[in-house]
Design a protein around this nucleic acid. Structure first.
Length: 599
RNA sequence: GCACCCAUAGUGAAAUGGAUAUCAUACCUGCCUUCGAAGCAGUUGUUCCAGGUUCGAAUCCUGGUGGGUGCACCA
């Protein structure tokens, strides 16, 4: 890659000057006018060797200029920085490379031979598919694809809580309120089950008798002693799992492995019981792990409760061992395990991973927990009220905004906005928007699906993982600006030119312009971006890059009439458009977003 | 109370310790008989507070302030 070439040039130049340096920082200047690459070495070195940074930069540039390289047009020293300008020749060749590589443009072999398991989505059977699951799914799917693009073998895993108090609450609710109508769709039945959870949960908190009964049901689910409970359990589990499958299909995820808490509980429990007195300790009738003994920032967690039932911690422990054993991590077959969950689980996961690390020190660096924030839904009415307050007073407005504009969604309280409803609402809004277009009904369905999902996924993946997300329907679904549909629309425009060009007689207009478009200056960077993304688990670098790229394309499109007999550069321009389309398509794929041909 | 995460234009976000802090939205102004105006071009506005480290801080350190999350038998 060109990045390495430039770094090597700098290294050689410094060797000529008898200067030693460990790592060279080479970045893209924020402003394209400052060159394609830039380095700050002169400034970092200046202090050590007691030189004037600007003079040192000039000196290094003088040596650099002696090296011949067809890819470099110009090297300059400016404000202590050394800037590199790539040549016309380089850009033309990079366009050729994109056209040659097509679907594999951006792929690398960096992680070739590595096996990585990514666990994400993790909805619980018997409970609604809520917004957190949507976030985990978007992030996990994108990270999976990024790892695949980097050459790793990826195993997509989904871990689901099909056992525990939440299930007992649902079963109690089903007994009390009855089963749903047999003729309902799978999705509607699943929704009914979700409502039973909400009702059962309320009764558990407010009704002593119900609480007692639910606790008994919970025990019976574990030991499978009651045939009626078993039947209802198996029925509900299947319905909700089938409903999830429909959503995964819409979202573009296909899991390789499904793990269930019911399977992990006995495995984890065995390990915990075997290690009582060594790692785990008895305390008030429960079996616990004292995290603070190993790290003062950790705390104590219960692994087996005083009823003798394994908690989530034990199940997680069992899961981790299964993941690694089944894939022979101990013979290094699985190299890395990534788990994506909401940030609420950050602290407990640290404790569990500590317990695992003590038993298996070789696993410590192979477990990665990625946490995402909450998604909040912008409340449009509250928003406009807060806005008018904000106009009057900045300080007050900010507070009112924070209070009024967002609400946290929780399936326990039975709020109506679930991940599932968000998906279908988005698709409906798109369908409404394109209702006037001359597409067949089937095409409209397909476009609504692709664009609706894109709006959701992009609003999750556009910001760095970890912070809360404010989801604003109007903004995300609008095709304008910083949105998934904007990227898709830009790709569709490019595709439209490419289709038209087939009928356009361009003659022999294949001159190459001297000038280099901003679009070209961005296209070649794609592989570097992906490299950056996999190292930091940060899909938002792709979103940011694609938005910049789309913006550069739209500027190019707006200022250049490509299919025009006056245009001497038709062939070159069409190659740029083709490369743009390919890059956008590959980039959107990495975000888990499809590229429609029309919309 | 303790621990972890966070604080950037009115709003939502970006910025491996680098150059004049970027983008979107909202407001205002132009551009459709011309490859898809769901677009382009232009205007206005931003790093919570106080210290410190550094040639250079939104970024690192210390102390505040404000918010989120977690802290024993839920997941």
């Amino acid at each position: 890659m060109i990045q390495e070439q430039v770094k090597n040039l700098i290294k050689e130049a410094l060797e000529n000057l008898n200067i030693k340096i460990e790592n060279i920082v080479l970045e893209h200047p924020a402003d394209l006018k400052m060159g394609d690459y830039s380095t700050n070495i002169a400034m970092t070195l200046a202090k050590n060797i007691k030189a004037n940074p600007k003079e040192l930069a000039e000196k290094i540039v003088a040596v650099l200029r002696q090296a011949q390289n067809d890819s470099l047009e110009r090297i300059e020293a400016k404000n202590g920085f050394i800037n590199f300008y790539l040549s016309r020749d380089f850009f033309t060749k990079s366009i050729e490379e994109i056209l040659k590589k097509k679907e594999s443009w951006g792929k690398s072999r960096i992680l070739s031979g590595k096996k990585v398991m990514i666990e994400y989505t993790q909805p619980n059977p018997f409970k609604p598919f809520h917004i957190g699951h949507l976030m985990s799914n978007a992030i996990g799917e994108s990270i999976s694809r990024i790892f695949e693009f980097s050459g790793a073998k990826v195993i997509r895993a989904n871990y689901q809580g099909d056992i525990g108090p939440h299930v007992a609450k649902v079963i109690y609710g089903l007994f009390k309120f009855g089963l749903p109508d047999k003729n309902l769709s799978i999705s509607a039945k699943a929704q009914y089950i979700g409502e039973c959870y909400s009702k059962g949960s309320n009764l558990y908190d407010n009704d002593e008798n119900a609480k007692k009964e639910i606790d008994e049901i919970n025990q019976k689910i574990y030991n499978k002693s009651d045939e009626k409970i078993n039947q209802t359990y198996n029925w509900g589990r299947k319905i909700t799992l089938d409903a999830f499958e429909e959503l995964y299909k819409l979202l573009g995820t296909k899991f390789d492995k499904y793990y269930f808490e019911s399977q992990m509980a006995p495995i984890g429990e065995k390990i915990v019981r075997e290690n009582i007195g060594k790692i785990f300790e008895k305390s008030d009738g429960a079996i616990v792990f004292h995290g603070e003994k190993y790290d003062p920032k950790l705390h104590t967690r219960v692994f087996i409760n005083s009823h003798g039932l394994p908690t989530y911690e034990t199940k997680e422990l069992g899961l981790t061992m299964v993941k690694f054993k089944k894939n022979n991590l101990f013979s290094k077959e699985l190299d890395f395990s990534v788990v994506t969950t909401a940030i609420e689980q950050a602290e407990y996961m640290k404790v569990v991973q500590k317990a695992i690390s003590i038993m298996h020190p070789n696993l410590e660096k192979r477990m990665k927990h990625i946490t995402h924030g909450m998604m909040r839904i912008a409340h449009s009415i509250a928003h406009s009220i807060a806005h008018s307050i904000a106009r009057r007073s900045t300080a007050e407005g900010a507070t009112a905004e924070g209070l009024a504009s967002s609400i946290k969604m929780s399936s326990r309280k039975g709020n109506v906005v679930t991940g599932e409803s968000l998906i279908y609402d988005s698709m409906d809004i798109i369908k409404e928007k394109i209702s006037e277009r001359k597409f067949s009904d089937k095409e409209k369905e397909e476009i609504a699906k692709i664009v609706g999902i894109s709006a959701l996924k992009y609003s999750i993946l556009k910001s760095s993982i970890g912070s809360d997300i404010i989801f604003d329907f109007e903004k995300s679904i609008s095709f304008e600006g910083d949105s998934g549909p904007y990227l898709q629309y830009t790709a569709v425009r490019a595709n439209s030119i490419l289709q038209k060009s087939k009928e356009f007689n361009s003659g022999n207009k294949n001159e190459i312009p001297k000038e280099i478009t901003n679009l070209e200056k961005l296209l070649y960077q794609f592989p570097e971006i992906i490299n950056h993304v996999y190292q930091e688990f940060a899909p938002h670098y792709i979103s940011t890059y694609l938005t910049e790229l789309a913006s550069a394309f739209n500027a190019f499109y707006g200022n250049t009439k490509i299919l025009d007999n006056e245009n001497k550069y038709i062939a070159h321009h069409l190659n740029i458009v083709k490369s743009f389309y390919q890059t956008m398509k590959n980039g959107l794929w990495l975000l888990g977003i499809e590229t429609p041909e029309r919309m």
